[in-house]
Amino acid sequence: MVERRGIGTILTHLALILGVAVLCFPIYLAFVGSTLSHDEILSVPMPLWPGGQMVENYSQALAAGTQVPVARMLFNSMVMAIGIAAGKIIISILSAYAIVYFRFPFRMLAFWAIFMTLMLPVEVRIVPTYEVAASLGMLNSYSGLILPLIASATATFLYRQFFLTVPEELAEAARVDGAGPVRFFKDILLPLSRTNTAALFVILFIYGWNQYLWPLLVTTRPEMNTVVIGLQQMMPSADDYGNWPVTMAAAILAILPPVAVVVFMQRLFIKGLIESEK
C-alpha cells in the first residue's frame, strides 16, 4: 500500500466526511422532521436541529398513524419480511439439495424450470400475477403478500453453489457411517450451511421489508398495509400540509428494522449481498 501523507490524508478524510454527510443528510433531515412540531416544520426554512416533539410524534404514529396505527403496519411488514425470508430459504434449500445430491428422471427439467425465474422479476409480470393472486383469493392476506415473492431462484442458486463446494467425501463418509439422505441433510448439510443461511436471511429480510409494488397491489385494506405502503399513503400531497412530523416519524420507524439488521449484522449482510450476486 502506497500511503498518503500529510495533506493528502486530510483531503481523503474530508472527501469521505463530505460523502457521508451528503448520504446521511436525507435520513438526518427525516429524523429532525420527526422531532418537530407541525408549526415548526411549516416555518420556512424549517430548523435543522432536532426539536422537542419526538415522543409525541412517535407515539402518535405508532398508536394512531393517519388511517392505521404504524405499529400495525410494522407488524405486517415484519410478518411479510420474515415470511419471505424463511419461506424462500426453506423451499430453496430443499430444492437445491434435491438437485445437487440426487439423480432422478426430469432432474434437468426441474432445474431449468426453477432457474428460469432468475430471469424475470415480479415487476415484469405484475398484472397477471395480480390476477392469479386475486383468483386464488389471496388479496389482503399474508399468504398473498408472501408467496408470490418467494417464487424466485436466487436463494436456490446460492445454495446450489454452496453445496457444490462441500467436499464429496463428507457425503460419502456419512453414507459409510450409515446416514441416509434425510439424516445427512439434517446432521451435516444444514449445520454446514448455517452461516450462508444467516447471511441469506439478512438479505432476504431487507428485500422483503422494502417491497413496494406488490404489497401496493395486493393489499387494498389499510390494516393489511405494510409500513412502506402506509408511509406513501400518509404522505401529505403537494397542496396540503398534512402531518409531516408524524409521517417522518413513520418513515424513521419504517427504516429502523432493516437499518438495525445492516448495522448490527454487517458481516453477514456483506457476505450475503456479495454472495447472492455472484
Binding site: 467436499p167 467425501e169 463428507l170 460419502e172 463418509a173 456419512a174 453414507r175 459409510v176 457411517d177 450409515g178 446416514a179 446432521d187 451435516i188
Partner: peptide, 17 residues
C-alpha cells in the same frame, strides 16, 4: 448400501465433519 456392508472407510482428505 455402504452402511449395510459393515465396513469403515478412511478418506484421503479425512472427510471429518
Amino acid at each position: 448400501e455402504p452402511r449395510e456392508r459393515n465396513i469403515a472407510m478412511v478418506f484421503q482428505n479425512y472427510a471429518l465433519y
